[in-house]
């Protein structure tokens, strides 16, 4: 019986990956999470140039989860590639954010020769203009971006979210263009207002909601995608314990990503691995894929 699994050609040591945007600016932290049982780690979404992001407050608790508008702060793809070059032996799925095919391809080229099992395209950040959801809402643009990257010979995971167009159209565009997998979903565009001051709690006003409140929405999306499409799906949204991870597998996901719940608890990956392992043993499964097929 094994927790190791393979999704779209990417070898995962376990079914629970670190989601993009969480804890992602130190190679030492990535190494610690991989040593703690994460199946793989995904970087913060990298842009062509460094981004400082929005001023604080960028995160606030809301409805049992977290609301954030960090504003895609990241060191930029060239700096991140140099960080990886300086820390060999730490494979990282690299998340990219941009607005046109050439931008994505030139960023991907920076990582040639480095341990990048796949690139995850952020087509779903809900709080920055011109990128993220604004790209994901345009299936024709998604198609061109995925085709260009596949033409460059790299593995591509399209991370989709709930924008203003039907997200299933984005999934179809990515699949038809040759994407290797889909991650569903990103945070859900949301807002909180402080009643005492009358002000939004985030400096940006709108943000994205993560954590337990979005899990049922994400499970629904995973089931919708896997019931209509062949492309492998990585479930993401509010996974906080092994039961949540199992729920996504039962919905049809091939693996899961953990974001908010990894906050302050790097041990969550070992907890999920141990819980899934016992679950599989009780049910007589020898592979992760059997959990999925049991649904």
């Amino acid at each position: 019986m094994g927790l190791a699994t393979r999704v779209a050609g990417i070898d995962l040591a376990g079914p629970a990956m670190l989601a993009s945007g969480i804890l992602g600016i130190s190679m030492d932290v990535f190494r610690r999470l991989l040593d703690s049982g994460a199946g793989a780690v995904v970087s913060k979404s990298l842009s062509a140039e460094p981004r400082e992001g929005y001023p604080n407050p960028t995160m606030a608790e809301a409805a049992g989860g977290w609301l954030n508008a960090v504003g895609l702060s990241n060191p930029g793809a060239p700096n991140f590639a140099n960080m990886m070059r300086g820390a060999p032996g730490v494979p990282v799925v690299v998340s990219l954010v941009g607005s046109d095919p050439d931008e994505f391809v030139s960023m991907a080229r920076l990582f040639e020769g480095l341990e990048v099992p796949a690139f995850e395209l952020n087509l779903s950040c809900p709080h920055v203009e011109k990128v993220g959801l604004e790209v994901g809402d345009d299936p024709e643009l998604v198609s061109r971006i995925v085709r260009s990257l596949k033409g460059a010979g790299v593995r591509v995971i399209a991370k989709v979210g709930l924008g203003s167009s039907d997200y299933l159209g984005t999934v179809r565009a990515a699949e038809d263009a040759g994407a290797d997998a889909v991650t569903a979903i990103n945070t859900v565009r949301a807002m909180s207002i402080d009643v005492h001051s009358g002000r939004p709690v985030l400096s940006n006003g709108f943000g994205g909601l993560s954590g337990p409140p979005i899990r049922p929405i994400a499970v629904r999306c995973v089931r919708e995608i896997t019931s209509r499409h062949e492309i492998p799906v990585i479930g993401c949204g509010g996974v906080s314990c092994w039961e949540d991870a199992a729920e996504f597998l039962l919905a049809g996901a091939s693996a899961v990503q953990v974001g908010t719940a990894a906050g302050g608890n790097p041990g969550i990956f070992a907890e999920i691995n141990s819980g899934i392992s016992s679950y599989m043993e009780r049910r007589g499964y020898s592979e992760i894929s059997e959990v999925r097929r049991a649904a």
């Binding site: 969480i22 804890l23 030492d28 932290v29 190494r31 954030n68 960090v70 908010t260």
Partner: peptide, 13 residues
């Protein structure tokens, strides 16, 4: 964030 989610305050691992 203040609670180990964002990674901004990292020092080594």
């Amino acid at each position: 964030c203040g609670v180990g989610i964002c990674g901004s305050c990292c020092m080594g691992d």
